[in-house]
């Protein structure tokens, strides 16, 4: 079992008002699954992704990632987990603007403390994989949206994570480019990677093999 949650809740306090973003989510995800978490805005899907992605800790409940209890980890251990086990692809790409494609993809390797010779080999390989080998010395402002998202995908995959989270990965792309990116995700999934898409778009969710629908901080439907 890769991911296992039990009764996960997350409350935010805004002034005196308490927002119950998640109200008891129990979920099990196997290695190699291709999942879409869907739901309207405010349904709690982003909050769930942040918790599963170890960017945030739950108010209550249990979260095991590869049988490790994430809620008991320190800041340092959480950051190591994000570095080694988790990859993120964001709607707005979130590339560092003034450095090259190579340097952007290198970032997780730097925090992993990997030797520069091995870093370069890995970067070459992953850029080849996402079809950007010819763009490696360009800066993000010289790339198209699709290319930027490919850089982000390369960055998410560079440390061979156990799970890749993609938060509205096609939200800033036109439909043709969006399709190309989803094709890339399909290929990556076929290679055995675990992918969790977060989207409100049913068409995008359709690419995944398993759908988890959320509403009001709870799982409404799981096609498992």
């Amino acid at each position: 079992m890769l991911i296992q949650t039990e009764n996960l809740t997350r409350h935010y306090t805004i002034g005196t008002y308490v927002v119950q973003a998640l109200r008891g989510v129990s979920l099990a995800i196997e290695n190699g699954e291709y999942i879409a978490i869907t739901g309207p805005s405010g349904s709690g899907k982003s909050t769930l992704m942040h918790l599963l992605g170890c960017l945030d800790l739950p108010t209550s409940g249990k979260y095991l990632l590869s049988n490790t209890d994430v809620t008991s980890l320190s800041d340092l251990e959480l950051s190591r987990l994000r570095n080694q086990s988790i990859g993120f692809v964001f709607q707005t790409f979130n590339l560092l603007p003034r450095v090259t494609v190579m340097k952007n993809v290198e970032l997780p390797l730097l925090y992993a403390g990997i030797d520069s010779r091995i870093r370069n080999e890995k970067i070459e390989a992953i850029l080849e994989r996402v079809g950007l080998a010819h763009r490696k010395t360009h800066c993000p402002n010289e790339l198209s949206g699709g290319e930027m998202q490919r850089v982000a995908v390369a960055r998410a995959l560079i440390n061979n994570p156990q799970v890749v989270f993609a938060d509205e990965p096609t939200g800033n792309l036109d439909s043709k480019t969006g399709k190309e990116i989803m094709t890339l995700f399909n290929e990556i999934a076929q290679e055995g990677n675990t992918i969790i898409l977060v989207t409100h778009d049913p068409n995008i969710a359709g690419y995944a093999r398993r759908q988890i629908k959320m509403l009001d901080g709870q799982i409404l439907e799981d096609t498992k």
Binding site: R82, F88, L107
Partner: peptide
């Protein structure tokens, strides 16, 4: 700020 968020997401610790 966004860069800091991203760096944390890809594995930077508070100390980094």
């Amino acid at each position: 700020t966004r860069e800091i968020g991203l760096r944390k997401a890809v594995g930077a610790s508070t100390r980094n």
